[in-house]
Amino acid sequence: MTYLIEEKNDYLVVYLEGEVDLSCSPEARRVILDCLQKQRHLLVDLSRVSYIDSSGVASLVEGYQVSRSKNLNFALVGVSDNALNVLKLARLDQVFPIYTSIEALLQGGS
């Protein structure tokens, strides 16, 4: 897994890329929590994630909960069908704010 962080409007955008599995989800978790520690709204872009396992999803869940406790915005964008299946299995598609793209979020779309 690799990652890139960019600023867009009021948000920090974390682009995750590759496979997010047991071996690297701790790094994804650290990156997400570090961004939130800076009191910044956060978008996690999963469009370049080829596979995400439960440990990766758990890192997103923790990030979302931390953002809520800090009154920060948090959303997922570019969720692939595979990733969406993993989220749906645990009904987390009903929990996360999910947008098709960063532009859709920033323009107030879905």
Partner: peptide
């Protein structure tokens, strides 16, 4: 079998119980 953070482990376990 893993060295995942305790928070991650607990969330994963609860996700599977939801499943």
């Amino acid at each position: 079998h893993t060295r995942l953070d305790e928070n991650t482990i607990r969330i994963m376990a609860r996700m599977k119980l939801e499943v």
